[in-house]
Simulated scan of single mutants.
Amino acid sequence: MRVTRIISTDGAAAAVGAYSQATTNGDLLFTAGQLPLTADGDLLDDAPVDEQTAQCLRNVEAVLAAEGLDASDVLKTTVFLDDIDDFDAFDAAYSDFFDDEPPARSAVGVADVPKGAAVEIEVVADAG
């Protein structure tokens, strides 16, 4: 029987609501949407979208590392942009993180991202 485990790390921003940073069943790891919040809780909502994207991905990286994983284990990302016109700037920063063999990705424009951020990123990774 598989058991779902909660994943938490001080290396990424703490959850800002009733959710976990990530969960795993031992085969797959699912992160919550990562905002451009530093591990100290500073929100980079006034920063350009490329800087916000980089912070979101640093949070993803920290959550993955808590399970001994890295970017190469990511199978799929979902990206929420509050302005789809920011896609090119987002994609440039995202490409720096997933430079060799990027995972599958969905990127959607939404009316609002939590906390007034420009971007939120969630991932599914191979934890097996």
Rank of each mutant, 00 (worst) to 15 (best):
M1I: 10
D45L: 12
K76H: 14
D88G: 12
I121A: 01
V60A: 03
P36A: 01
L35S: 04
V108S: 09
V124Y: 02
G68H: 05
R105F: 08
R58V: 02
S72V: 06
A65Q: 07
A22I: 03
L29R: 03
N25M: 02
G26Y: 09
A12M: 08
V113Y: 10
Q34M: 04
T31A: 01
P48A: 15
T23F: 04
S20P: 02
A118S: 15
A62Q: 08
T77I: 13
A93M: 08
D27N: 15
V108N: 09
A15N: 07
D96R: 09
I84M: 10
A12D: 08
L29G: 06
D96V: 07
F87K: 14
P114K: 10
I121M: 04
P48S: 15
D73C: 12
Y94S: 00
L81N: 06
R5N: 12
D42C: 07
A118V: 13
G128R: 13
T23L: 07
Q55V: 03
E101M: 05
A62R: 12
A13R: 05
E120K: 02
F90M: 08
D85W: 01
A92G: 11
G17A: 05
G11S: 10
V3M: 11
Q55C: 02
E61L: 07
F97Y: 14
L37T: 11
D96L: 09
G33I: 00
L64P: 15
D46W: 01
T38V: 08
A65V: 02
E51D: 13
E101Y: 01
K76D: 14
A54N: 10
I6T: 06
A12I: 11
Q55A: 02
T9M: 07
V63D: 05
D50P: 10
M1S: 14
D85C: 04
D99Y: 13
L69W: 02
T38I: 11
A22Y: 01
G11E: 09
D100E: 15
D42Q: 14
D112F: 04
A13S: 12
A117G: 12
P102V: 05
D91P: 05
A92P: 10
L75D: 11
I6K: 04
D10G: 11
E122Y: 10
S20E: 14
Y94W: 13
T4Q: 11
A22E: 03
L69A: 06
D91V: 00
D88E: 14
Y19Q: 00
D82T: 13
D73K: 13
C56L: 01
A14M: 10
V123H: 03
L28F: 06
P102M: 09
S8L: 06
G11F: 03
D50A: 15
R5E: 15
I7E: 10
P103W: 00
T4R: 08
L44P: 00
I6W: 00
R58P: 02
A54L: 05
L81Q: 04
R105K: 11
G17N: 03
D91S: 14
D45Y: 10
D10V: 12
I7F: 05
A18M: 01
D46T: 13
A14G: 11
A93T: 10
D27P: 02
A111D: 14
A66Y: 02
R5M: 12
R2Q: 06
S72N: 08
Q52Y: 08
P114A: 11
A125I: 00
R58Q: 04
R58M: 01
E67R: 14
D82L: 10
